[in-house]
Amino acid sequence: MGPRTGSTELLQQLNLKEYEATALAHLLSAGRTTAPDISEATGIPQARVYGVLDSLADYGFIKVIPGRPKQYQPKSPAEILERAKENRRQRYEDYCTEVEDLREAFIEEFGPLYERADEDVTPTAELFHVVDVGTPSETETRQLYRNATDEVFVITNSFAYFDDVEPAVNGALENGVDVSILFLDPRTLPQEKAAVQADVVDRLEAEFPAIDYRFSEERLPWRGTFVDPSMAYDSGKAIFLVEETDVPDHRRQAAITENGSFVAGMLRYFDLIWEYESLEARPSS
């Protein structure tokens, strides 16, 4: 009996083709077996089944046991999921490498055209643009970490979205970028948010000792992330939102700016709070 349709559809969510998903579903239910047996049990043509199994082996989802005939054994479901994530990660890293290899020629070709068109169309740059809070804002935040070359500054209540940006944070640290976080005093937070903050701070202490953080003694008017500010007003980018306690985040938008003067002003504000109105140690309730 062939694999159930639901099993095949579930495996196809790992970006497997129909025959690949069908063969893997059968292996997961039948265990070690041969290509002819898989072909007979699933209806995959014998002319195709070896190529399908070679693909599954390349993905790291099955083992090939030499012999006459060869046998094929599936990895465990947990191993398959981990390998699927690693495959996607590797494809992303390969794509990033390809884009970086393209950078010099791309900038040389299109940079002058863009600058000339921008000069012709508008004499002043847009100060802000906005994105929805949630997945779009988290995507923009991850991009800030990836593009940072020197410093990242964060103002946050509890850093509840840390899981969503952690790989980007870790990448920035590995690239030698300094990360500083200004948390809101947990005594000013609702109990649920204070608990989230405590968990995040514990993780930072245990897993990211290079990150500096302090706790603001007062409520802050905005929260967000900004990178690479310059007192020459010629660099920096930020994403932030002003505090509106009566409006849920899913109904809000975050502002993004690449205006060097504005980002420099954000740094001055951050430094003042950090130096004069914050605590190094976690406040006790």
Rank of each mutant, 00 (worst) to 15 (best):
residue 187 R to Y: 12
residue 189 L to W: 05
residue 167 P to L: 13
residue 161 Y to D: 04
residue 162 F to I: 01
residue 190 P to Y: 11
residue 184 L to M: 08
residue 170 N to L: 05
residue 171 G to C: 06
residue 176 G to W: 15
residue 164 D to Q: 13
residue 164 D to T: 09
residue 188 T to L: 08
residue 176 G to P: 06
residue 187 R to D: 12
residue 157 N to R: 13
residue 187 R to N: 08
residue 172 A to H: 07
residue 164 D to F: 06
residue 157 N to T: 12
residue 191 Q to N: 08
residue 176 G to E: 07
residue 170 N to S: 09
residue 191 Q to S: 09
residue 172 A to F: 03
residue 201 V to Y: 00
residue 161 Y to A: 13
residue 189 L to T: 12
residue 180 S to F: 14
residue 168 A to W: 03
residue 158 S to K: 06
residue 201 V to L: 09
residue 162 F to N: 00
residue 159 F to A: 06
residue 177 V to R: 01
residue 173 L to W: 15
residue 181 I to S: 05
residue 176 G to M: 10
residue 162 F to Y: 04
residue 189 L to I: 08
residue 192 E to I: 14
residue 183 F to V: 04
residue 167 P to N: 11
residue 174 E to D: 14
residue 156 T to R: 00
residue 154 V to I: 13
residue 183 F to I: 06
residue 182 L to Q: 06
residue 185 D to K: 04
residue 155 I to M: 10
residue 187 R to M: 14
residue 194 A to V: 02
residue 168 A to L: 02
residue 159 F to W: 15
residue 178 D to F: 06
residue 191 Q to C: 13
residue 155 I to F: 07
residue 175 N to D: 07
residue 159 F to S: 00
residue 186 P to A: 10
residue 175 N to E: 12
residue 169 V to I: 12
residue 176 G to N: 13
residue 170 N to V: 09
residue 172 A to C: 11
residue 157 N to L: 13
residue 189 L to A: 15
residue 199 D to L: 15
residue 201 V to T: 14
residue 197 Q to A: 03
residue 160 A to G: 11
residue 178 D to K: 09
residue 184 L to D: 01
residue 155 I to K: 11
residue 160 A to N: 11
residue 176 G to H: 12
residue 195 A to Q: 15
residue 189 L to S: 14
residue 166 E to K: 13
residue 201 V to I: 09
residue 201 V to M: 08
residue 157 N to H: 14
residue 194 A to G: 07
residue 180 S to K: 07
residue 188 T to G: 09
residue 181 I to C: 13
residue 155 I to N: 03
residue 199 D to C: 14
residue 175 N to V: 05
residue 154 V to R: 02
residue 163 D to M: 08
residue 194 A to M: 05
residue 187 R to I: 08
residue 157 N to Y: 14
